[in-house]
């Protein structure tokens, strides 16, 4: 490690990306359309009786997660994002999950329920 790694900015990567962008536009439109269709589907399915309300909630949440995933992956460019961003988001995800799950656990006690 005697030679310090370079930290000079490089430009070719962004240049290269600019040419790709025009190819992406079709994809963005397609994703937008998918999201709109999914919204309609969410509304429609919420009026279908899946047996219990829990099942309806589950169906709607699965669809919402799918939509959110599309937005994050395509619109927010997570598909081409750097590892560092992913690491931050993974930790955030774990902590949000802890917040949801443990507040729920704290409410639920197998002895009293």
């Amino acid at each position: 490690m005697n030679n310090p790694p370079t930290t000079e900015p490089v430009d070719h990567e962004t240049e290269h990306y600019a040419h790709d962008v025009s190819n992406h536009v079709r994809g963005y439109l397609l994703v937008g359309a998918t999201l709109l269709v999914c919204t309609g589907l969410t509304v429609f399915l919420s009026y279908v009786n899946f047996g219990s309300q829990k099942a309806n909630i589950a169906v709607a949440m699965v669809l919402a997660t799918f939509k959110a995933g599309l937005v994050a992956y395509i619109f927010m460019h997570l598909s081409a994002e750097k590892k560092l961003i992913y690491r931050v988001l993974v930790f955030t995800g774990i902590f949000v999950f802890a917040l949801f799950w443990l507040t729920y656990l704290a409410w639920y006690d197998p002895i009293t329920h």
Binding site: P5, P9, V10, L84, I85, V88, F91, T92
Partner: peptide, 24 residues
């Protein structure tokens, strides 16, 4: 322009960190 070893420019890091806090 992006820093080579992280591959990111400053505001990109900043906004994602901010969004992480928004998620919370």
């Amino acid at each position: 322009t992006a820093r080579p070893d992280t591959g990111l420019w400053n505001a990109k890091v900043g906004i994602w960190l901010f969004l992480a806090s928004e998620v919370m």
